[in-house]
Nucleic acid binder design. Structure first.
Lengths: 109, 109
DNA sequence: CGACGCTATTCAGCGTTACTATGTACCGGT
DNA sequence: ACCGGTACATAGTAACGCTGAATAGCGTCG
């Protein structure tokens, strides 16, 4: 992945994961696979797990350990009220940024 | 400014500044003022100057020292060919990200 | 003249984030 | 018994923006 993408993901990836969790509960491995499907081709596994630990510590998600049929038990995360609040704040921040950038992109040619 | 905005600006602010410079040459103080006008209310001065040093070292901009009527001489930056290439790459990366996020935002309700 | 305010740039130290690279562990099929 | 896929964890590194301060030129007001 380009270095630009790496830097641009900072602060955004967390929002993406929270958005995923707002649709339905999921576990780390699943989220990583989904991201790769969506074209974030080489997001490292470790990145997602570290992020999940972070949002858990901040109290944005609830965790439940669920035994898996094929492999070690899964840690299933689900967004709680505080997490939803954070997600809304994320969308506000994102919208602000996206608007300015769209204007710049259109105006700049 | 929110912490979210701070993190989200990483990798984006550089693109914004390059986009500004693609329209016309400018110097640090001017760019900072413009950003504040656009609603990036408290972007630190130091941030923009550090960014300009970085893009200069990477060879994305040309620099010219111009005496100022009221204050120390200005360092006027202008985007060169390499910078334009980097800016295009930035827009591609941004578009990719913006598309995924828009889908997530719409789908997530 | 001297103090202040505006213009303009620079720098050291810090916190946050994502990546790299590796390690652990559980399971089924051959 | 081994291997590959599933699933989680973590120590170390690099990049970026912020904080807070320093430096410096110029004009104005008292």
């Amino acid at each position: 992945m380009g270095k630009q993408m790496t830097e641009m993901l900072k602060g955004v990836l967390e929002g993406i994961v929270l958005a995923i969790l707002s649709v339905r509960s999921a576990y780390g491995y699943e989220i990583t696979a989904w991201l790769r499907d969506q074209g974030f081709s080489d997001i490292a596994e470790g990145t997602v797990y570290a992020l999940l630990v972070r949002v858990e510590q901040r109290g944005f998600v609830d965790v439940e350990k669920v035994p898996s049929e094929k492999g070690p038990p899964r840690k299933v995360y689900s967004l709680n009220a505080q997490g939803r609040e954070c997600l809304e704040e994320f969308w506000r921040t994102w919208s602000f940024l996206a608007e300015r950038l769209e204007q710049l992109h259109k105006g700049g040619r």
